[in-house]
């Protein structure tokens, strides 16, 4: 147990150092969601109150940008893992007595940290351009923690694909899978305005519940039920992705 914790600490440090040394990889994870945020608000802000019944569309969209940024950050981990596999560094780590689970845990912890950083930046920009934050500073802390948890949970998808395939092209599926999840959720409008089929799909989509919990903090204040569902959705995604990752790790590493 102690050995797992120590190895996770050192490998997390390495992963974060790596992120700091590649700003060209990290910055797009902030800039692209901010670009989408600006264009979506620009396109729909005027019609949102009448069309969707959303009084502050900026506040409605800031959680989407945060989730999008965090999914991007988490997906990079899979690509980094494939790079390690390709250049043989993963084998070098496997040759040490490092507990295998530390190789995955360190990535998840590093992604959680990276997710809190990018989501904080997006939140600050969102507030600067007019988003409310009804739950106050405490709400901001919960938002960022929720994003940290989502970062760790979602990075498991890319890690599982990378460990199983060792293929850089396949590793990019981590972010590609996210877009259908986002578009089939309440990312752009409340589900009340959806066609029935899309409403049904959105109700089964964990991203819908994640966004609902975040929006409750931004637009309404504290809502225990919505927050509970949001954390449960992250837990569900995390359980699924971690299960896949551990299976893939077992198949790759003895």
């Amino acid at each position: 147990m102690m050995r797992t914790a120590t190895a996770t600490y050192w490998l997390t440090k390495r992963a974060l150092r790596e992120a700091l040394r590649q700003p060209e990889v990290e910055l797009p994870q902030i800039l692209i969601p901010l670009f989408f945020l600006a264009t979506i608000i620009g396109a729909a802000n005027q019609i949102a109150p009448q069309a969707f019944g959303v009084s502050n569309y900026t506040g409605f969209q800031v959680p989407v940008a945060m989730v999008q940024a965090v999914a991007g950050v988490a997906s990079v981990s899979g690509i980094v893992m494939v790079t390690d596999i390709e250049r043989g560094y993963f084998d070098k780590l496997l040759l040490t007595p490092t507990p295998r689970i530390a190789l995955v845990l360190s990535r998840l912890v590093a992604d959680a940290v990276r997710a809190t950083v990018v989501s904080t930046v997006i939140l600050v920009v969102g507030l600067a351009i007019g988003s409310p934050l009804e739950a106050g500073v405490g709400g901001a802390v919960i938002l960022v923690l929720l994003m940290g948890a989502f970062g760790a949970a979602y990075s498991g998808i890319g890690l599982a694909i990378s460990l199983r395939t060792g293929n850089p092209q396949a590793a990019q599926l981590g972010i590609l899978i996210f877009f259908p999840l986002l578009f089939l959720s309440t990312a752009f409008a409340p589900k009340e305005v959806f066609e029935p089929w899309l409403e049904t799909v959105a109700e089964f989509n964990p991203v819908t519940y994640l966004l609902a919990g975040m929006r409750s903090l931004v637009l309404e204040g504290w809502d225990g039920a919505d927050l509970g569902y949001a954390f449960a959705a992250v837990g569900g995604i995390g359980g699924f992705s971690l299960g896949l990752t551990m299976l893939a790790l077992r198949l790759r590493a003895r």
Partner: peptide, 22 residues
């Protein structure tokens, strides 16, 4: 194939390796 991490320095790589051996 020398399995190394290009983003670390030589010293960092060896120190990390040492820590992983406890």
């Amino acid at each position: 194939e020398a399995g190394l991490d290009d983003l670390q320095t030589g010293r960092e790589l060896l120190v990390l390796q040492g820590h992983l051996y406890g």
